[in-house]
Design a protein around this nucleic acid. Structure first.
Lengths: 198, 198
DNA sequence: CGCAAAGCAAGCACTCCTGATTGTTTTCGG
DNA sequence: CCGAAAACAATCAGGAGTGCTTGCTTTGCG
């Protein structure tokens, strides 16, 4: 039995967005063409064009989706964060896994492409800034940061940057497992810094 | 007076390589076409094709050049490293400046593109691994690492990853100046870790 | 039941890029 | 001085992608 038309439309649009995100994560920015995305979504180019009139429209929707999903993912992790155990290590691993995930990899591809593409940059920058604030807030919350300690904010930012750097290296080298010991050391250091785990 | 032919050939080839690297750093991977590079180099497409028969050939030469130049740059920094002052901070800033530089930005663009392009990945991976070993060695040397301390190697890798993460963020946000305080904190922490500055 | 709207699909024209081919100019060696 | 080689340049054919137009099918409402 076929779907109600509006539901069918919604489903096609969602498949196109999912396909765009997967394409970004697996093929990269330059390989994310409307032709490739439509094929991966299993819809025709005419259908794709009906939903997104131009490639720019598709990309805009995908960028918004990626940052929304990353934000949602972080909030969900925060909501379900397991007490007990090594909190700094768990947070560091959470962030590292985020960058390594589907949305994290798509985001990295988009951000690097945005660095050199003015149109994409104008689109990505405000969304990335909003996401960064949310990421900072969530990470600080999970690390139980004492907001009165001025150095604590620096530690949070260092943690985020470090996991981003590890994530970037892992994109190419697929060496995340081997980085566990390094990350464990950072978590151990983090636990000793002022304002962390108050 | 025109140049000797061999010198002229060498100069054209060098201009093409320089143009490729600048294009990568400023326009990104997808915008680095032979047409764009030849225009930036101020040579015709025929001339470009004479020196590099295919785009793959040009890219291969550029990848080798980028990793060679980054390696040379690190060795030069090592040779001219100024004694006195805050050594960990100086090293952290040195690494951060490297990623922010022309070769560092081109390298980041290449590495991210290589993550999703199998042909480019096969080319980039061995060179990146060689460069990473050199970078580790140089950084450890500059930090005066005690090789007997097992945790020290982790600290070196964390330092490299952190500056890479900061560099990635700075590609998009141009916020390097504002990160100085964070990096200063890492340098302060680094100085306290076992095996650093022995 | 019929018609309009929406969703989907096919085809066209244009642009850009690459690799190959052909042609021109410059340089160098015999 | 001449011819060959190298450096450089112009052109062509084909492929890929985008945006637009036209056409078909399905759905829903009056």
């Amino acid at each position: 039995m076929s779907q109600p038309q509006q539901e069918r439309s919604r489903a096609t649009r969602q498949r196109l967005l999912d396909a765009t995100i997967d394409n970004l994560a697996e093929v990269g920015w330059s390989g994310t063409t409307v032709v490739a995305v439509a094929a991966r979504a299993g819809v025709s180019r005419g259908a794709a064009q009906h939903h997104f009139a131009t490639r720019d429209d598709l990309v805009r929707a995908a960028v918004e989706s990626v940052t929304d999903e990353l934000t949602r993912e972080m909030r969900e992790q925060e909501a379900h964060f397991a007490e007990g155990g090594n909190r700094p290590l768990a947070v560091v691993e959470l962030l590292t896994d985020m960058w390594a995930g589907r949305f994290g990899r798509a985001a990295t591809q988009l951000w690097v492409a945005a660095a050199t593409d003015p149109g994409l940059r104008a689109l990505v920058l405000p969304l990335e800034q909003r996401f960064s604030r949310e990421l900072f807030r969530t990470t600080a919350e999970l690390l139980e940061v004492d907001r009165r300690e001025p150095r604590a904010a620096e530690s949070v930012r260092l943690t985020i940057d470090l996991t981003r750097g590890v994530g970037l290296g892992a994109l190419l080298r697929s060496d995340l497992q081997r980085r566990k010991a390094d990350l464990a050391q950072w978590a151990a250091v983090l636990a000793t810094l002022p304002g962390i785990g108050s």
